[in-house]
Design a protein around this nucleic acid. Sequence first.
RNA 1: GGCGCUAUCGUCUAGGGGACUAGGACGGGGCCCUCUCAAGGCCCAAACACGGGUUCGAAUCCCGUUAGCGCUACCA
Length: 481
Amino acid sequence: MSPPRVRFAPSPTGYLHVGGARTALFNWLFARHTGGTLVLRIEDTDRERSTEAHTRVILEGLSWLGIQWDEGPFFQGEYGRQHKADAERLVAEGKAYRCFCTRDELEAQRREAESAGRVFRYDGRCSLLTAEEVERRRAAGDASTIRFRVTDDEIAWEDAVHGRISFQGRDLDDFVILRSDDSAIYNMAVVSDDIAMDITHVLRGDDHISNTPKQIALYRALGHQPPVFAHVPMILGPDGKKLSKRHGATAVGDYQDQGILAPAMRNFLALLGWSPGGDREIIPEDEMIRLFTLEGIQKKAAVFDGSKLEWMNGEYLSALPADQLVGPVRRRLEQIGVSDNGRDLRPLIDSVKARSRTILQVAERVAVRLDPSRSELDEKGQALIRKMGPAFASNLLLAADALEPLRNGAWTADRLLACLKDLAESNGLKLGDAMQPIRVALTGSTVSEPVNELLAVVGPERSLARIRDVARRTAGEPPAA
RNA sequence: GGCGCUAUCGUCUAGGGGACUAGGACGGGGCCCUCUCAAGGCCCAAACACGGGUUCGAAUCCCGUUAGCGCUACCA
């Protein structure tokens, strides 16, 4: 059997949605796993809503996620002649027919059916037209569409994720395949293109299940073997409804902006609706490709859980060498207007990345270490100052004096720790009472890397200046109640 | 309404008739470690939608019910 050919076919009517991104990811994983080919096709036949900007954003999103396509991008809009030719061929073979019903007439029929409590299905009246009548009306310039003639047989297929799915032909009506302006309707265009591109496996959202019988009927009418269909489940918001704008971030670009790492996003998305079996959570790209199978795809829709994404991102962040974080962190620093003064950011990144979950957090914390005066006192920091009372400022001053001698050349994490321990001991302080005020002074918060390491990355000048500054400004605090 | 799909902890999932006292992960809670936090270690709470079958035996197979979702355009 020749290697599979799959495709990802987004319409450029919006940004790259996480659902679309996951569909693309599954196609890519399948292609890589099987040694097949991934074709990218932009379905831009909806002229009203498609834009080049959207196309570009979608392509960038895919690239960011590390999804490379092997062929394309092709633009469906360029294949209009083929779509039309296929539709007309079906008419010539009697498998489709010209329909002269206008939208208004159709609308009236629909309303009538509904008020009678019936389901509206096109009754096929135009299929009764004689060849002469059709010719006469076309010659007269009457607009017409082409409708596909659906037979009553059962249409079934073995879906790679759902198993056997079947529809009855009589539940379908004769659907339009070519508009009166000669452009193809989605189902026609897709089938025509998938045939032309030799697509062997169609992996797409399961909201397309009800399109599938129509498409299979078209394949058969066109004399082609339908591909294997694999309908992947939808992604839902926390309320169980289809994920949409009102659930917050839904575009992959949003996550990129929030400081999510591409490998984390990819890992998270892969596990939404697919499982290699067993307990795997963090799965590197090559493993993922090796383990990916259609059988591992879930039937059930999955809820997008942002907190798990963040956790996973934190895992990737901690594991990533600081080297690879310098670029993104520097970009973010520029965005928030912080200069790195030409400093090597790696030690700073190393000291904060284990405690961070996004690049944004890393950058924020690096910024504070670059310039402690940027820190903002948070609630816990305020609570500590209240609790310690005058001791907060006086311990700070004590520390500054003790640390002063290390200023020239001895400002290392080891020496700083030893010095702080001595300080606590000789003044009868608990280690925490010596350390915490420094932490708060430098970061505004009671949470950070070990204080000696913090001091080391901030450096002697800024540390000492900041400690004394904060000591001076808090010296007037009232004693604890 | 019609047609279709789906149903295991709050969430993502493991599970393919006995290995199930239903496992893991996120999130939540507790303890240990500890200058704080994170990490790490240990522990706790938390699920097979319901009802019928089939079977010696059912989370697993079948049927029904219920619920959720999708589609039902000269949109894609």
